[in-house]
Amino acid sequence: MSSYVIEASGLSKSFGSTTALAGVDLSVRTGESLAIMGASGSGKTTLLHCLAGITAPDTGTVGFRSGAGAVVVTGLSERERSRLRREAFGFVFQQGLLIPELTAIENVALALMLNGMPRPAAEGYARGWLAALGLAGMEERRIGQLSGGQAQRVAIARAQVTGASVVFADEPTGALDSHTSAEVMTALLDSTTGQGRTLVVVTHDAEVAARCSRIVDMRDGRIVGERLRRSPEAEVTA
């Protein structure tokens, strides 16, 4: 049995005359933290969108394996991909992109309510995750009443509360200062790989990438390098 949770092969994607991905092969191991690095326009966010089933690639396949079995993400309909994202994946974005009119606990519980869980139970789980991320007592605050770091931890709780086996984070610390950024990365790693889950991070921040177990570098829609954190000398070039 493969230890890969996501396997992508031959991914290509163009937007008009712009090639975002040009034949990308990438496997994500279960329980690892993978950083996808690259300059702006290198195709890293498009790759994340294809891996997470947000965007359908022009060619190539993405497979996802979980305890429930294996699915070919690229073979699913739009509706099925939405359901997969809702139930199996979690997302953290640069600005948090939380719903401003909802309270912290409602933002987190919403992810479970979308899967049909009754509100009282959903808020119970949400409360637990917020407390685990150091936000006990702030459940009823609205997003505008939280600091950037606190809001990002609410976003992490939202990504985790459904029990997502893979969390995708797109520049999760992009809007934070270095101190808060380190705190948020710690919270993100502890709540994912720290619990046997998988984390895929898109970042241009070398310090953020350095905290992941594996780093792939992208340029012009291709993977041009791969590094393992614990053995930086083992750098390979694709």
């Binding site: 969108h49 939405s82 997969l84 994202r85 974005f93 992109l97």
Partner: peptide
């Protein structure tokens, strides 16, 4: 628009 895009990514149906 950014928020709606992120909700779509989270898997929230447009119908919701």
């Amino acid at each position: 628009a950014d928020l709606y895009r992120s909700l779509d990514m989270l898997g929230m149906p447009i119908t919701t």
